[in-house]
Design a protein around this nucleic acid. Structure first.
Length: 296
DNA sequence: AAGGATACCTGAATGC
DNA sequence: TGCATTCAGGTATCCT
């Protein structure tokens, strides 16, 4: 089967870091909206403003501007944010393409000053940030910075792993949760940012069957799972995210985590620990992968 | 209340 | 071959 998956915390964090490096300090000169349904708010509110920060909450991105407005983005499954290669002078743009739905025209003051040197392949201080999205599920909104946290998605977000999610809080959460543990890991209102890939792999690392009722896990298992979550997310960030199919960082490059999948998308393949065949079941409408021997 | 089903959408895989 | 059907999936929303 083909794997389709959205960017999860490590992928979105990788994009956030890339944007921080490449577009903070730039000014938004124009916004071309090619698919109106993916864009909410008045683009005029941010045109002419300077990008001062890029934040991430769960799988959501917030680009802060110097006029107290923010551009909020959720990539959902197939959204990509790719900066113009022109900006980096490392080749010609492959974008826009038929899936490019929003184009931010940006101006880099630093480049503008130096635009007579070789850093720019062409003598043009403008660059582009392309929003591509095959499935068209993602969205971009212009909102006041102080209203970002009131957006329904952000308002309902749970704790941030590697930050606010402590072992104590995680333990309490698990003990009150009556549904399968995998549902808890993927519940954005409980823990922000874990999606199908990392939930599957964390459960494998902790040797816990995805269908186990959360509140029945032992303290030792809870601890192991907590460590496993941190482990897979850190590994994901370290390798630049998982790119089996659609995910790209802001330079249009793939990540490397797909080479470390333990169970995700490995139905019928051998468990890397015991050589049993990885099984696939459906939980909450999502493909769920596990080793029937290692995970109990 | 909380869990389940459905809509959104298109490319790839499958079916005939 | 080629056309039609099925499937995947995060989140919002509706439903039970």
């Amino acid at each position: 089967m083909t794997a389709y998956f959205m960017p999860e915390l490590p992928e979105v964090e990788t994009i956030r870091r890339g944007l921080e490096t490449h577009i903070v300090g730039c000014t938004i000169e124009d916004i071309e909206i090619r698919l109106a349904k993916q864009f909410a708010g008045d683009p005029q509110l941010v045109i002419g403003s300077k990008i001062i920060a890029v934040r991430r909450f769960g799988k959501g991105l917030v680009i802060d501007l110097d006029n107290s407005y923010s551009i909020v983005i959720h990539l959902k499954m197939t959204g990509q944010l790719v900066v113009s290669r022109r900006l980096l002078t490392i080749g010609e743009d492959k974008y826009p393409n038929k899936w490019t739905h929003v184009i931010f025209k940006i101006k880099d003051q630093k480049l503008n000053i130096k635009n007579t040197n070789q850093r720019l392949k062409i003598n043009d201080p403008f660059s582009f940030l392309y929003y591509n999205d095959i499935r068209q599920f993602g969205w971009i909104k212009i909102v006041k910075a102080d209203e970002v946290n009131n957006l329904p998605f952000f308002k309902s977000l749970g704790l941030e792993p590697l930050k606010d999610l402590t072992i104590i809080r995680f333990g309490k959460m698990v003990k009150c949760f009556r549904s399968p543990i995998k549902s808890l890991l993927m519940d954005q209102g409980k823990i922000a940012g874990i999606g199908n890939i990392y939930a599957n792999d964390a459960l494998f690392a902790a040797k816990i069957h995805p269908n186990r009722q959360a509140q029945l896990l032992t303290q030792a298992e809870i601890k192991k799972l907590f460590k496993a979550i941190e482990g897979v997310l850190k590994k994901g960030i370290e390798t630049g995210g998982a790119s089996e199919w659609n995910y790209l960082n802001v330079l249009g490059e793939k990540g490397g985590y797909q080479n470390f999948f333990q169970v995700y998308n490995r139905e019928g393949e051998k468990c890397k620990h015991c050589s049993s065949l990885i099984e696939r079941i459906k939980m909450g409408g999502r493909g769920t992968f596990y080793c029937p021997v290692c995970q109990r």
